[in-house]
Amino acid sequence: MTSTKAVKTSILVFALTFFGQLAQSQKLPSGAEVLQKVVKGVEGVQDYEVSLEADVHLERVRIPRAKATMYFKKPDKVHFDSPSIAMMPREGVAFNSAAVLEQYTAQMIGEDTVQGKKAFKLQLAAKAATARLRQLFIWVNPENWTISRLQTIPHEGRILTMDFSYVLQDGKYWMPVALTASFGILDEGGMRRPQADSSSSPETPLDQMQMRTPRSGSITITYSDYKINVGLSDEIFKPQQNKQ
């Protein structure tokens, strides 16, 4: 008698959960739809020039606050110009949502909250097996269809989280004004571990020569003085000698 009651209760709970989730998923747009809206928001941006200021706080790295100018031109040309040495995260600093749409398959995970605001969480899986980043998680703000957070695992055991803030430029394009890229370590359970103790790692001379990727810390990039659709010349993007 008791077991029959338990079975009935289980079926009821399962049904409620299943239909509840089904109803919720019907309300949510698909991952591809969300990503397309993100791309559409900056579709009109053919090129831009922006001033950057990088503040680096990474373990074993000491670089003074540096300024640079970044040039972007569709489809994927990026160039940095700076009199001083600055270190920028390779991912995110010139985030190209059109390229992401082309290279990744998006899947809706659900709703989440980022910086106190509602966001759609998407899981992006690389279409090509050779892609450097096989999987990304992005959080999209449905108010302006911008990516408010991006999370990925660039290396085994490492986690990179990028938080973006946006401002409307030229009255029509939401462009990033701040990016904080945080680097952390994943423990065995996949959870983020706090700051690593750099002094505990023994270093061989080879390690010293081959600079290892910092395991923890953050880089904050502030963007200012956007010049959008100014018709940047391709010459700017040609590689120059003696530049890294």
């Binding site: 640079a68 040495i85 995260p89 390779r90 020569m209 081959q210 990727t213 003696n242 890294q244």
Partner: peptide
């Protein structure tokens, strides 16, 4: 310099002219 910073360059872009 590129060799010494090879692994770093996977994740980071160095601006300016470090090789001066």
């Amino acid at each position: 310099l590129k060799m010494a910073t090879q692994s770093l360059q996977l994740d980071f872009i160095f601006t300016g002219n470090p090789f001066n």
